[in-house]
Amino acid sequence: MISVKNLYKTFHTLAGDVEVLKGIDCQIAKGEKVVIVGPSGSGKSTFLRCMNLLEEPTKGEIWFDGQQINAPGVNIDAVRAGMGMVFQHFNLFPHLTVKKNITLAPVMLKKQSHEEAEENAMRLLKRIGLEEKAEAYPNQLSGGQKQRIAIVRSLAMNPKVMLFDEPTSALDPEMVGEVLAVMKELAEDGMTMAVVTHEMNFAKEVANRVLFVDDGQILEENEPEAFFSNPQNPRTQDFLSKILT
């Protein structure tokens, strides 16, 4: 479903060029749940953001659904409509109600009629138990509620894959569970998912595969059982020993 080939990304900053990704290769099959872990500054978020070209790769190829999406002439907006993304800071639209947040894109892109989109939004809100918040504004909600709504906002476009960029990192601890629960449910429904997270228990329970990214490269990848119980790379061992205390 997603195929990343020899991906490089260099940021040009005032302090000079920073090479964040140094040759990443990765395949994500349909229905697979891939969790990406690694220390901060390792490039894991940039890697994820390259998948829907929020960051433009310096070099390399990104393929989605049989199409190279970072080739010239590709309508990236149409591609992104099929890829949901959830952000660390939710990024709900504060000037719109919850329902309008969810219906905006499907209606504007003519994926659904206004009525269909509203119906769909209410169904999605019901699924996460927030239907009574349909007319509320984002700033009236808790972090956990915001993030759950951000997830269903992406789902409203019926994406083929969902990208999660540290979805629980900005939440108060007591709200992490409710967001992870929605994500687990999504995984059980067969959604293809790529998740950057520090929630190792989520990785253990949900992932088919865990990638360890450090210094712009995938240093180790394995199924979660083996990854956590028997890490091979010394830097993976070091990382896990620090995070699983």
Binding site: N52, L54, D77, A81, G84, M85, N91, A105, L109
Partner: peptide, 29 residues
């Protein structure tokens, strides 16, 4: 916030739709 543009674009809205429906209303406010 830049995240607003990113959220709009990640939903498949193009640059103009994002500017008109998401950024400008907040900017005016």
């Amino acid at each position: 916030d830049r995240g607003q543009t990113e959220a709009g674009r990640s939903l498949g809205l193009n640059a103009h739709q994002t500017m008109l429906n998401i950024i400008l209303p907040q900017a005016f406010k």
